[in-house]
Amino acid sequence: MSAPERIPPRSVTTAELLAEGELTVVGRIRDASNTALYCTVSHDGREAGCVYKPVAGERPLWDFPDGTLAEREVAAYEVSEATGWGLVPPTVLREGPHGTGMCQLWIEGGTGPELLALVDGEEPGEGWKAIGLADVGEGRTALLVHADDERLRRLAVLDAVINNADRKGGHLLPGAGERLYGIDHGVTFNTENKLRTLLWGWAGDPLTGEAVEVLKRLREDLREGAALAERLAGLLTADEVQATRARVDDLLESGRHPRPNGDWPAIPWPPV
């Protein structure tokens, strides 16, 4: 009698690892405004680093409901995945050592071209987009610029959709190869226009053809009853989901990157 065929064990997916793996706290990320813990997560022989932000460690904000930042981080990941651009690291909502929280795959910083810079003069050089003047001390100013980079431009579109109120330079994370990630999406999806970002270099410019096609697909994915809309409904209020639909519609109607509206500080502080 021949031996039974051995079926190789199924590999644990990243989503399963983050959602079901055992979380072990290694230390606290000190420069985070809310409690952010660096952890390892292990499941069926696979292990990875991750960031765990428990809801219990969130500081109250005047313009966002208490205890909702972790869910907004997960919602940002869901929308990012729907675009197909993969701009947000895998993120889940789960139980952990300090209660329910957001758990996001740790991305080891990679190398790549410079994304932000301070330059003399009033105009950006070739390959750069102007953000605005910055005080550099001793009564001097310099022009703050960001790279004219298609990855940043995609991120600018995503931020407009999710209404990101805090796109700082420190939230831009180059990954392996040519990947670029955006992190820290707790203050997103407000029903009021709160877009605050360093990525204003394309303000008023026509959207790329790629972005228009992505937004058209996203509009379908956000219609009532669609899978993405249902997932967001478990993370956001009905008004916040509807406001997201409206922002996608507005982008498609204008066909352009949004401009600062003047009702809200356009650039986060500190910017980096």
Rank of each mutant, 00 (worst) to 15 (best):
C50H: 14
D120T: 07
H146E: 01
G109F: 15
P271W: 15
G96N: 02
E210Q: 09
Y77A: 11
A176R: 14
G177M: 01
E253K: 11
G21D: 12
P9V: 11
E192T: 15
L115S: 07
G127P: 00
E5C: 06
R153T: 01
M1Y: 15
T14M: 13
L118S: 02
E81F: 14
P268F: 04
G110Y: 09
R46L: 07
F189E: 01
R245C: 13
G110N: 03
P97R: 06
L17Q: 02
T237G: 15
A142F: 03
E22L: 08
E224A: 12
E230P: 04
P60T: 12
P265F: 10
L251D: 11
L218H: 09
T13Y: 13
V248K: 10
E47P: 03
P65V: 09
H146S: 03
A142P: 05
G27K: 13
T68R: 08
T141R: 01
A134S: 13
L37R: 04
T244M: 12
A32P: 07
L218N: 06
Q104P: 09
W128C: 02
D66G: 14
R247D: 09
G110M: 07
L115C: 07
L222I: 07
H146Q: 10
A15C: 00
G139M: 00
G127T: 04
A76F: 11
F64E: 12
G225V: 10
L152Y: 01
T208S: 15
T197V: 00
D120I: 01
A227Q: 15
G45E: 03
V241S: 03
R196K: 10
S42P: 10
R217W: 04
L158D: 05
T237K: 08
G255D: 06
L61N: 10
V212W: 05
T83Q: 13
A147Y: 00
L23I: 15
D249N: 14
A142V: 08
P265V: 12
G101M: 04
I7R: 05
L228Q: 00
W200T: 03
P265G: 08
D184A: 03
V136S: 01
W202R: 05
L222R: 03
K53S: 10
T100H: 05
E123D: 02
E210V: 12
R94A: 11
R28Y: 00
T208E: 10
V92P: 11
D159W: 00
V157P: 04
E240W: 04
A3G: 06
